[in-house]
Nucleic acid binder design. Sequence first.
DNA 1: TATTTCACCGGAACCGGTTTCGGTGATTGG
DNA 2: CCAATCACCGAAACCGGTTCCGGTGAAATA
Lengths: 340, 340
Amino acid sequence: MSITQLAKDLNLSKSTVSRALNDYPDVSFETRERVQKRAEEIGYIPNPVAQRLKQGKSNAVGVVLPPPLDNGAFIEPFYSTMLGSLVIELEKSGLQLLVTTQKTSASDDDVVSYRKMFQRGLVDALLILRTHSNDPRVEFALQHNFPFVTYGRTEKETKHTWVDVDHEQAIYSAVIRQVGRGHRQIAFISTKSRYNYAQLRTEGYVQALKDSGIPFYPRWLVESGLNIDDGYRTALKLLKTEPRPTSIVCTTDDIAIGTMTACREFGLVPGKDIAIMGYGNSAACEHTSPPLTSIEAFPKQLGEKIGKFFTERLDGNTSDALQHVQSTKIIERDSDPVLT
Amino acid sequence: MSITQLAKDLNLSKSTVSRALNDYPDVSFETRERVQKRAEEIGYIPNPVAQRLKQGKSNAVGVVLPPPLDNGAFIEPFYSTMLGSLVIELEKSGLQLLVTTQKTSASDDDVVSYRKMFQRGLVDALLILRTHSNDPRVEFALQHNFPFVTYGRTEKETKHTWVDVDHEQAIYSAVIRQVGRGHRQIAFISTKSRYNYAQLRTEGYVQALKDSGIPFYPRWLVESGLNIDDGYRTALKLLKTEPRPTSIVCTTDDIAIGTMTACREFGLVPGKDIAIMGYGNSAACEHTSPPLTSIEAFPKQLGEKIGKFFTERLDGNTSDALQHVQSTKIIERDSDPVLT
DNA sequence: TATTTCACCGGAACCGGTTTCGGTGATTGG
DNA sequence: CCAATCACCGAAACCGGTTCCGGTGAAATA
């Protein structure tokens, strides 16, 4: 059912019908009512594709997800809840979210998948996830003058609109907490350093040691993959170092869960013989044994913020770059006791 | 850069350029080469929106996700990996996945979100997740003759294309396993029965008891929400029944994790004093204590199958309904010991 | 009464492609 | 030598909307 047929049905022209449906002023009250009523009756809904073509707007925001994880998961829990609230926020402004993934083979800062999205028409703006310190995707978007929001800053902290967690502060406070509980042998399991957040967190770790007058041992700063098993294997190596750390701060809850099993293999009971902290405050934290102390980063609020930034930018508010850094909160549980 | 401009640049007509780019036979070799070379140079890519409008195809498949979970997650891990492999499979045929969510307020079989998708142009086909026994979305799609694939059967098992897990067999084999390990007091924590899979699993539970000559106690068949906490609370009630079950089969890993903590509160050590099984074989299973015996349902394969069904259907293969039921496998760990 | 204003509506252009149709000039066949 | 075929390309219609422009008749103004 096209607008042409509807117009014929009503003995009106396409243009009048269109104006009536879109509440233009120069159409009489009676015909407007008549058109809208009839449209309702026969369930007419304008073809969104035609609208997009004419208006040059798609009313959609695109995101290309990182390649599936090793475990085959489409998306990590953190992004899951962030995107969840993003979708809800976008919906308020009539925006949709178009999701794609990278090819499995591609590295996650590959530009090819973004190029397709850039083609005017498919999406009006892009969300770039998990920025690298030096991110070609950001360069690409800036260069093509395409509206975008990033989750995560870049090294240059270019003047674009971004949302990010206060990673440095998050890990800083975690380490300070460990110090306050009597630890001086504190390890940090990080991830690949090309991620900008990884660098920020590492800075937080180093800074906290410094401010506490604790020397920095490079052996206790290790990198791990993001899976539980990655964390497990990394922790196995870490626990072999001499002296052994008495507290391990993990950059992910999954990594923390993996290190807990690694500890048990070393005969160390987490929460008793060794302190462990996670990051993300995932649902599992409550139900590990012992329950895992973790850092809440409020992905829901982040998603809302991103959504608001999108609507602002797409409303033409490009005056200045919108930016937001989200502070975190330590959720205290039983996995990191006071050192005895 | 539109095709019109490209044509002007080449001193050719739009139509010739279009034909050259799409490898039509009635264009000379030289001009074809010239056009394609020039298009490459200036990075011309046809506007997908215009293509969609003309061709009436969007080359996209839509899915509307259930409303965000109570914990705010966009998507459950199972769907996460299923959609991950689906996207990869669709990509092979040049198809995209368009993701939307329900309004938070809506029930997850609400048709309104689907109605938007139905509008010709946005997507060529729909994926309907987690069917109810009596699903208005399926009725709606059939009624409007819109191509779709469901994950999950319906009560009527209408002749449409679907993919589903062999839920009945899955739980049947789980219960039989418990019987084989000496249990005769076996509970099953299910979910809301309007989900078709819930009914199938319950049938599997009941049938297994019957075939084992074990009487059915209604008290040991309980319903729970999908979260860890829901499982926890449900298990608390279940453990108060007299007599107390010696084995609990859970319809979800999360529920199983919740029941494990519930057991501990009753002074029961999971894997020792009581047997527990999960479903889904999520990453956490390896790292609970004890590691959780669970049922692998192969979401990756399901996603691939769904993708193949989509490409077949969109290639016009509507001859007969495509259907696939995925068998499962029990992954044995330490949470369900032999009864002593 | 003549002219301007106004409310209201239809015609047509347009978005950027694809595809049908028809028209060249060259080549082949009779 | 004329007609039929052929390769190749341009003009134009079309997809389904939106919006500019102009035109009508009635009402307001001079």
